[in-house]
Write a protein that binds this DNA or RNA. Sequence first.
DNA 1: ACTGTTGTATCGTAATACGATGTATCGTGG
DNA 2: CCACGATACATCGTATTACGATACAACAGT
Lengths: 153, 153
Amino acid sequence: MRPMSSEADGAAPLSKRDFEALAQFRSGIRRYLRFSEETVRRDGLTPQQYQLLLALKGFPGRDWATVREIAERLQLRHHSVVELINRAQAEGLVERGPDPDDKRLVRVLLTAVGERVLARLSALHRAELHRMRSVLTLPLWSDPPDGAGGSVA
Amino acid sequence: MRPMSSEADGAAPLSKRDFEALAQFRSGIRRYLRFSEETVRRDGLTPQQYQLLLALKGFPGRDWATVREIAERLQLRHHSVVELINRAQAEGLVERGPDPDDKRLVRVLLTAVGERVLARLSALHRAELHRMRSVLTLPLWSDPPDGAGGSVA
DNA sequence: ACTGTTGTATCGTAATACGATGTATCGTGG
DNA sequence: CCACGATACATCGTATTACGATACAACAGT
């Protein structure tokens, strides 16, 4: 297609500015996750537990999810999620329930406590995201990274 | 729904849709980090090592940084960064150099190998970010989170 | 009922960020 | 130029957690 570019990959080399943009975005993620960690730990949760609660409450269309679905959303192996649920359940944040149709499935849902904590923490996260929007905005290179020489020059 | 609410924070309660947006964004982060991990591991790096390299090459104005500066950008404790650098140095990705002015400082910089690997990986990351832009775009609530019940889409 | 597939759970292991602590270098006041 | 506190880098032992390997339970099709 493109006769250009001497790069083996077919990807245009990044400029210093590209690296800076990429690094800034990654750093933004780190900062947001750090904020999240400190915030949730103040309420006695681990970051993973918060993610679990959020995945449940934020599941499209429902308020619960199966182990597998959670694993997919959190990008973890199923058995890692099982352990995560165990810990969260021990803390009284979530509970397991049976699925009426398929007895292999386990429905994971929030407890009243989990609901309350999550609501509180999520509000704080929403506010922080708003504050951090400048660093967390995607470094959008003009177009699909393909055209010659990159954005600036 | 009751107009009356007991959130003492002054923060408006989140709607189901808000939770879904928040969860989707968080999931997007997880996915991106997962992609990153798998990508860099294929080249023999750990995610932390990639972040280190990127932080160096992407440092504003320079292409080296001190331990402290890296710790700040990666949101880690200084001594965690020391260990990270040790591992990366053992792999031949970075090297330490003295600072001419202040002998307490250690300049961390990329080796030729580090440069090459980073360039390759960063191009892949840039492309992936572009692909993921829809899920990684900030859930921008109309305005400062305060006004009533979120946006209606 | 038999067999392959899917979903959940258990156990031992490896990786890594951290707190506590130690050492070198800097800057400044006496 | 020496003493002192502050700053920067380094080392060690510990705790948390995601993982691979493995096992068990329930489903679906023949």
